[in-house]
Amino acid sequence: DENEERIRAFALYKGIDPEKARELWERGEINKDDEEKAWREYK
């Protein structure tokens, strides 16, 4: 689903483990601007 892809995109963008990215996502600790930037680059 799209959230999974967004988490993966963010992990790649930040160079972090996707599981770590998922934890940040679930806790609401992902910066929305960074997340959008990562998503645009990923697509």
Rank of each mutant, 00 (worst) to 15 (best):
R6Y: 06
K37E: 12
N3Q: 14
N3V: 15
N31E: 10
Y42G: 04
A9F: 07
E5G: 05
R22H: 05
E29T: 05
G15F: 02
G15S: 06
R22W: 07
R6S: 03
E26A: 13
A9E: 02
D34H: 03
W39D: 02
E26S: 10
E26G: 07
L24D: 00
E29N: 06
R27A: 12
G28A: 05
N3R: 15
I7L: 08
K43G: 12
K32Q: 11
N3D: 13
E29Y: 07
R40I: 12
K37H: 09
D33V: 10
W25N: 01
D33E: 14
E35S: 09
E41V: 10
I7M: 06
E29R: 05
Y42D: 03
K20F: 13
E26Q: 12
A11W: 02
R22S: 03
E4A: 11
K14G: 03
I30K: 02
A11I: 02
K14F: 15
I16V: 05
Y42T: 04
R22Q: 05
W25Y: 14
W25H: 05
A38K: 03
G28H: 05
I7N: 01
A21R: 00
E5D: 10
D17F: 04
R27P: 00
K32V: 10
R6Q: 03
K14M: 15
A9K: 05
R27C: 11
R8M: 14
P18C: 15
F10Y: 15
P18V: 15
N3M: 15
E19G: 10
E35K: 08
N31M: 08
D34T: 05
L12D: 06
P18Q: 13
W39V: 03
Y13H: 04
A11E: 01
K20N: 07
E36G: 03
W39R: 03
R40K: 13
I16K: 00
D17C: 15
R22L: 06
E35N: 08
G15K: 09
E2F: 14
A38Q: 03
E4I: 08
R27I: 05
L12Y: 12
Y42M: 05
D34M: 07
E26L: 14
D33Y: 09
D33K: 07
D1A: 11
I7Q: 01
D17K: 09
R8E: 04
R27V: 04
F10R: 02
D1Q: 12
I16H: 00
E23H: 06
A11F: 01
D1R: 12
R27H: 07
D33S: 09
R8N: 07
K37Q: 13
D17S: 15
I30Y: 11
P18Y: 15
P18W: 14
R40P: 02
D1N: 12
E5R: 07
D1P: 11
K32H: 09
A21I: 04
G28L: 03
L24Q: 06
N3A: 14
G28M: 05
K20V: 14
E23Q: 11
D33W: 09
E23F: 07
A9V: 08
L24Y: 05
I7T: 01
K14E: 04
K37T: 11
R22A: 05
W39E: 03
E19H: 08
D34Q: 05
D17I: 05
L24W: 04
R22G: 01
G28F: 03
I30M: 06
I16M: 09
D34I: 06
A9I: 08
Y13M: 07
R27E: 04
E2W: 14
K43W: 12
R8L: 15
Y13E: 03
I16R: 00
L24E: 02
E5A: 11
A21C: 08
R40F: 13
